[in-house]
Write a protein that binds this DNA or RNA. Structure first.
Lengths: 230, 230
DNA sequence: CAATCTCCGTCTGTATGCAAGATACAGAAC
DNA sequence: GTTCTGTATCTTGCATACAGACGGAGATTG
């Protein structure tokens, strides 16, 4: 029948499963610091709070564990992840590696699209800095770094990043680094990265990125050490 | 009682959960090519075959999906993953990136231990080549590459590798590359890598590794293209 | 008063039951 | 003969029920 092609356009997106909904809700709760590091999560409490049965909650928690956002201790309970300074250091090192490689790919195969994405993210950060909350800025920051993986053309690279991006985002919001000049400094570094990328200066890009991420690493490490000491 | 501290040392590792057992069993079945790419897996059939209820089976399948070993299609079923040539290419590229970085870390911080591990793995490969099955050789090969991540000192790097190692291992056994000289060539490349590592020649190491992995990529790609064409 | 034992509440791990979507096939209508 | 439709039977998604493990409060004993 000739009208079939037209009909196909009506295909509806099937509703998200409860597992997905719960997962996203909890993910947001953890990342946006609605819960504290190490806080206990009872499957029972969550299921009644969210109005679903324990089954999807349980499955969602399992997924979050794979993303490193919660820690499941057999027979004891599930807890919001609690990073140590070492954790953060390794995490940042790893992140630097992923981003460097993603950027290299972007520069080689999707220069225009990546540049567009970056400038768009910068605009969002500007807006957030001007009028938004700190959370808005953090979200925009996250978005900036995600651009690389959207255009890098390697799904595995993107998956690997996604498997740690939750933790990175959570660190950003939980440890609202108290340094005053922090946002301004972050912004200027992001701008520098866009510029280096536009000019195809890969070495510069690596340097800025390294500095950007490793500085974050030290800042987070300091805050954590202070927290565990005090 | 003062003897409690001594008694604690006898604590036995608690029995694995059913989920873990099922997961490992299925993982092995997929990796060792007991099932074919794309084959359907029914929760019901699996649960009765394994003698457990559907719950742990379901959870295990969810985990395997996160490792990329199965694909879950809502309301339709679960299937053994079915890689395309593109998949394989991206996978190998990613793998090269991870291994390169891991090796760099090993060379910098755990030279001796890594070298020991590599030579041990080489010995296992020799043994497998002399008298073992092709599966034995594949397992030893997998072991060789795992050494890097054992000693690289970055858990995230190791996790990322583990999240794709299943697929890599499955490719190795499923696509038993028919080229005759393959094993010998692979062996010699591994030996070259050990040598370059021992001498600290990082650039050489990168080159060999790149060649080693990218050649595997092309070989797998060929087999897959031929399979999908024929 | 301190150390230890015991019991109980709470948690997770697993089994099972039920509902709803997807597919394949048989049969009816043209 | 071809196409459509209804149904039978698969599949998963989710809810609930039950049992075993862990941890803490209180009882018990030195």
């Amino acid at each position: 029948m000739t009208s079939m092609k037209a009909i196909r356009r009506f295909k509806v997106q099937q509703p998200k499963s409860l597992v997905t909904i719960v997962e996203e809700r909890l993910r947001k709760a953890i990342i946006d610091a609605e819960m504290r590091f190490g806080e206990a999560l009872s499957e029972d409490a969550l299921s009644s709070a969210l109005g679903v049965s324990r089954t999807p909650v349980r499955e969602a928690l399992a997924r979050l564990q794979l993303q490193g956002l919660v820690t499941i201790v057999p027979k004891k309970g599930t807890f919001v992840f609690a990073p140590t300074a070492e954790d953060v250091a390794e995490l940042c090192t790893f992140r630097f590696m992923l981003e460097t490689n993603a950027l290299r790919e972007c520069l080689a195969t999707a220069r225009e699209a990546t540049l567009d994405g970056m400038t768009g993210a910068i605009a969002a950060m500007d807006a957030a800095q001007a009028s938004g909350t700190r959370h808005d800025y953090a979200r925009a920051d996250t978005g900036f770094h995600e651009v690389f993986f959207l255009h890098c053309g390697n799904r595995y690279l993107g998956n690997a990043y996604r498997s740690v991006s939750g933790r990175v985002a959570a660190l950003r919001t939980h440890l609202s680094v108290p340094l005053e000049g922090e946002q301004a400094r972050s912004m200027s570094e992001h701008r520098l990265m866009v510029e280096a990328f536009a000019n195809g200066r890969l070495a510069d890009l690596d340097g800025i990125l390294r500095q950007h991420i490793l500085r974050a690493r030290d800042a987070y490490g300091d805050v954590l050490r202070r927290a565990s000491a005090g």
